[in-house]
Design a protein around this nucleic acid. Structure first.
Lengths: 136, 136
DNA sequence: ATCTTCTTTAGAATAATTATAAACAAGGAA
DNA sequence: TTCCTTGTTTATAATTATTCTAAAGAAGAT
């Protein structure tokens, strides 16, 4: 459980002004036990439901992108009509249940080390992500 | 090099009528040495350039989806504004050069075997794909 | 030839995301 | 505090990839 005050400091330290909207979004996103997978629209609805205050859709987009840029959110590479984000920014992988359009975390141990044996001159590896699609 | 006649047979065997448009698309997609990564829009433009005949955008969508369904194309999971497809439908992985928005194949040997140690009751694994993002 | 079914097509509809520009709020300086 | 600058929010419009629609056209069977 992170206090409102801690979110304010975290935002300040990232040179993001701690607005009411951003603090609300922080509380919805980061006051959780488990990792959270969401789309912008999921979040938009959740904010209203959980905080009782409405934040405009544009602000949700702005804030999620700002948090992503600062490294507080991770974008999950799937082809879906909507973009998925993850509050777990550590190195890890995903199951994607194609039928139910649901993401499930895979711990790094569940996948084992992945050694990339090829390299591209002038480029370095930014991330290695495994997506395991599930069917019935 | 596959002949037009062979494409016609391939289409018939897949219960897809061999129309002029589909044959043109086959020639653009499958008469290649190397694997080919593309977006619908890439392909739309290429068809005009390579065959001199225009195929409507809707038909390109229809055909690519039909080929995908039949297993002649693979969809590559990246978050991009456009969906990427691959003519290499064998089990393999990708580099994605984020800056240049370019895909590069990774052979299975370049990545090594991936053992998924976790399973979800009632679900089976459909595919395992690794995406390695590259930066400068 | 004729008929049925599948396919193509242009254009409209949809839906996610981004841009715009005006109102507003934060934080600093006086 | 009050003023000022800069960053933020907001509703709405614009953009863009993709899907839908319905009419015209082509394939294949009879």
């Amino acid at each position: 459980m992170t206090s409102k005050q801690e979110f304010i400091e975290k935002l300040r330290n990232s040179s993001l002004r701690p607005t009411k909207q951003r603090i609300n979004i922080c509380e919805v996103l980061f006051n959780r036990d488990k990792t959270f997978h969401f789309t912008i629209n999921d979040l938009f609805i959740l904010i209203k439901d959980k905080t009782g205050e409405k934040v405009s859709l544009a602000t949700v987009y702005n804030t999620v992108h700002a948090f992503h840029k600062k490294g507080y959110l991770k974008e999950i590479p799937i082809n879906s009509n909507q973009t998925y984000f993850d509050t777990n920014v550590t190195d890890h992988h995903h199951f994607f249940d194609v039928k139910e359009e649901k993401l499930i975390d895979l711990k790094n141990e569940d996948v084992g080390p992945i050694e990339i044996q090829k390299s591209i001159p002038g480029k370095k590896i930014k991330s290695v992500e495994v997506l395991v699609k599930l069917e019935d």
